[in-house]
Design a protein around this nucleic acid. Structure first.
Lengths: 181, 181
DNA sequence: AACAAAATTAAATAATTATTTAACAAGCTT
DNA sequence: AAGCTTGTTAAATAATTATTTAATTTTGTT
């Protein structure tokens, strides 16, 4: 053994690896590839990294690191950092989980609300046409009304989800559910 | 044309298809296969369905319907219904999106909190050992402390997420963010 | 402007995941 | 209990997605 302090260094590495493993494993939630999940978890304990350092540390190809970083930037879990002197690009992990939560879920929920609300509105138009059409039998009208009401009901949910997004974005939610208790 | 009311029937089908398409498309969020997503969206406009009706309607294999239904049951977006008389199993879609939201996200977030909290607690133990170890150099101790504090900070987020789950489960959140405005 | 280094894109391969067909097991009905 | 219907499991195939190697483009330095 060249130095007894090496044992402590290893304990630290072990500790980090436990957390890196857990974060990477739960990151499938965020719809990222295993490479991106591992990368974020690794970066979580680093100040900043270049693509070559990532490749070295994860033992993966540079394009894989490049696409992973881009994907992580999209959901704002990684930000580009400007380091003068070095001409390599440097990137840093967002370490504030609250911010990651906000960006990721708000983005996702807004897409869901937008897409589904649009479809619902269009569908309701069609249903109204069927209801108003004099050629429609009473049975058809009843059916159309039933679906119309079901869709109208679903809008309550989409509006609520939209409100939730607003409340997270504005930080209002933390008045109701404080970060520290 | 055998009956002019057919045009209205078609308008209704068109309307449903728009919503079915949108729901199925946004359901990748819930980590289900395309088959399961399509199935749920289709069931959303039906009272209840048997496996054979699903196979017929989606033009897919019965085992595919069987596994899709099971997956949807796991996240409680589909429930088994008991229909006397028929010996075929029948299933119904959960049509209350609030309930689906609750079950899905609470389940997911609880898993994330549990896994990551456990890893963090274990890692912090290791770090304390490194800090207390007399063989550790001052540099090692400083490093270990830095990581310890970072992990301690992350616990604030996990506790908050856990509170959010509680608040959704209990319905308390709807006092702050009402369903209808 | 020319060169070198770094990053990205494209094409090919590898790995994973979804779906189907075929075999099996469980559940009713007579 | 035998036989038919329904549902599930297992193995094989198909489709998709992730990753790599190779080629190209971009960026910065001299």
């Amino acid at each position: 053994m060249e130095e007894s302090s090496q044992a402590s260094r290893e304990k630290i590495e072990q500790a980090k690896d436990k957390v890196i493993g857990a974060i990477a494993e739960t990151m499938d939630i965020y719809g990222v590839t295993p490479a991106a999940a591992n990368l974020y978890a690794t970066m979580y304990f680093k100040d900043q990294m270049t693509l070559d350092e990532m490749r070295e540390e994860l033992e993966m190809s540079k394009p894989s690191m490049s696409t992973s970083v881009r994907k992580l930037q999209e959901i704002e879990m990684v930000k580009k950092t400007y380091t003068r002197g070095s001409r390599k690009h440097t990137y840093a992990a967002e370490k504030n989980f609250f911010r990651s939560f906000m960006v990721f879920y708000c983005q996702m929920w807004e897409r869901e609300v937008k897409m589904n609300m649009e479809a619902v509105e269009e569908a309701q138009e069609d249903l109204i046409n069927a209801i108003k059409d004099p050629a429609s039998t009473p049975e058809i009208v009843a059916d159309a009304k039933k679906y119309y009401d079901q869709l109208e009901d679903s809008k309550t949910y989409y509006r609520w989800l939209s409100d939730l997004v607003q409340s997270i974005r504005s930080g209002e939610i933390f008045e109701f559910l404080p970060k520290e208790k």
